[in-house]
Simulated assay, not measured.
Amino acid sequence: MKKWLPFVFLLTTLVCSAQNKSIEAYAGFIEKIDSLHIEHQIPGLSVGVMRNDSILISTGVGWANVEAKKDMTAQTPVRIASLTKPIFSTLFMRLEEEGNVDLNWKIKNYVPNYLERCERILAYFEKQMPEYAFLLKDYEPNRDDILLKHHLSHTAEASPGTNYKYNGLLYGMLSAVMKTATGVNFDRMVDSLIIQKLELKHAASSQLDDTKTELLNTIALPYHFSEDDSFVRSPFPDKDLNAGAGLVFSVEDLLLFDKALTHNTIISNKAKEKMFEPFLLNDGRRSPYGYGWFIDNYKNNKVIWHYGWQPKAYSSLYVKIPEKNLTLVMLTNSEGLSSSFNLSNGNLLQSVFAQAFLDQFVTD
């Protein structure tokens, strides 16, 4: 397994300009992440840390392509899995701000053939993929009170707004809402309002983007760890894009997106703060999730975050602490960054990778 040693000079260069932090402190974080990536059987990992718009760490370890021994770097395009959700949510909140959508609309009015679609998907799961039938088991599409905000906040199941339950399938339905409300597909919107506007160099709206063939040929390949202690190529997950998954970004691109989010380049501060607030359940309890983001707390600091997990393929982590203008992004080409930590329950501290970051960079 490739070590961090080739990156020591880069790390030293990056941290020499950082204030109130020693080279040794950053090296300790890198050493910890190196140890964790080996422990959790990750072939390639890219990581970026940014504070006050300055990049403190931007590098990679291991292989984007194990067979070809191609380095994983901060510029390597990676399937970001469910980190697609906060990016979609950002655009959705922009549409609401512009009056193109209303979070209190009924979803059945904005998803074409809504009831038929739900019934067809459930029937398929029950017959072909029973392990996924739970995704629609507690969803009642015949109800008249399922609103867009319930899908955006993962509170659409059973009695809408009553309980939080992470459900990527139901979140993904919001792509159809965007198309119905605006006439524009999610891929075109993310292309124009994020990738092109922010001049992202290593991003694509999906693996099906035929304008990015050269870029997509450099994508980090997915792997899983075999019983004989070796990495085995996995098939790519579904290449289609929806609100819940499918975007291809590098760590460098996500840091640029984060900077734009911080400075309200994409949406207003008012819309952003609405997105970053925990959803209030019907009984007044605060959900661990807002609109497209998890909300947590660490040492009295509000933490906005999300993770991604595509089994045996990709995993990712994005942690943002607004009060400190501090951000972490990690992308990997295996499931090891997320599969062991049950992050869907909303507790970021279950991730040893997140804990290493918080311990190192949030001291008060």
Rank of each mutant, 00 (worst) to 15 (best):
58 S>H: 04
61 V>S: 15
198 L>V: 03
91 L>H: 06
86 P>I: 09
67 E>Q: 11
32 K>P: 09
41 Q>L: 09
250 S>Q: 05
162 T>V: 14
301 N>Y: 00
61 V>A: 14
130 P>F: 01
118 C>T: 09
360 Q>A: 13
303 V>C: 01
117 R>S: 02
193 L>Y: 10
156 A>R: 03
333 N>M: 11
313 A>C: 10
52 N>L: 08
247 L>Y: 01
312 K>S: 05
162 T>F: 10
134 F>C: 15
6 P>Y: 03
63 W>P: 02
20 N>G: 12
120 R>A: 13
115 L>I: 12
258 D>W: 11
191 D>P: 02
248 V>F: 08
204 A>V: 05
281 L>G: 07
296 D>S: 10
229 D>I: 06
170 L>E: 00
18 A>E: 14
317 L>R: 07
57 I>Q: 02
198 L>Q: 03
344 S>A: 15
329 V>C: 04
41 Q>S: 05
119 E>Y: 15
336 G>H: 05
352 V>C: 13
67 E>M: 03
247 L>P: 00
120 R>F: 00
11 L>I: 12
242 N>I: 07
68 A>G: 13
225 F>P: 07
42 I>Q: 03
54 S>I: 01
270 K>P: 09
291 Y>T: 01
140 E>L: 14
280 L>H: 10
7 F>A: 14
356 A>D: 12
137 K>N: 03
94 R>Q: 12
290 G>Y: 01
79 R>E: 11
41 Q>P: 01
174 L>V: 09
352 V>D: 13
363 T>F: 08
116 E>L: 15
270 K>C: 07
295 I>F: 03
114 Y>C: 04
144 D>L: 11
346 G>R: 01
92 F>K: 07
63 W>Q: 07
176 A>W: 12
7 F>D: 12
174 L>I: 12
104 N>A: 08
19 Q>L: 14
327 T>Q: 11
99 G>Y: 06
121 I>F: 04
143 R>F: 02
265 T>K: 15
4 W>L: 14
182 T>L: 10
2 K>N: 14
82 S>Q: 06
197 K>G: 02
219 I>D: 04
215 L>D: 00
171 Y>W: 09
111 V>S: 00
69 K>D: 07
278 P>N: 00
161 G>L: 04
336 G>W: 01
301 N>L: 00
84 T>D: 10
3 K>A: 13
256 L>P: 08
226 S>Y: 06
70 K>Y: 10
300 N>L: 06
107 I>G: 03
303 V>K: 09
98 E>G: 08
183 G>C: 02
349 L>G: 06
28 G>W: 09
356 A>M: 09
293 W>H: 04
87 I>L: 07
335 E>L: 08
6 P>W: 06
351 S>P: 09
173 M>W: 15
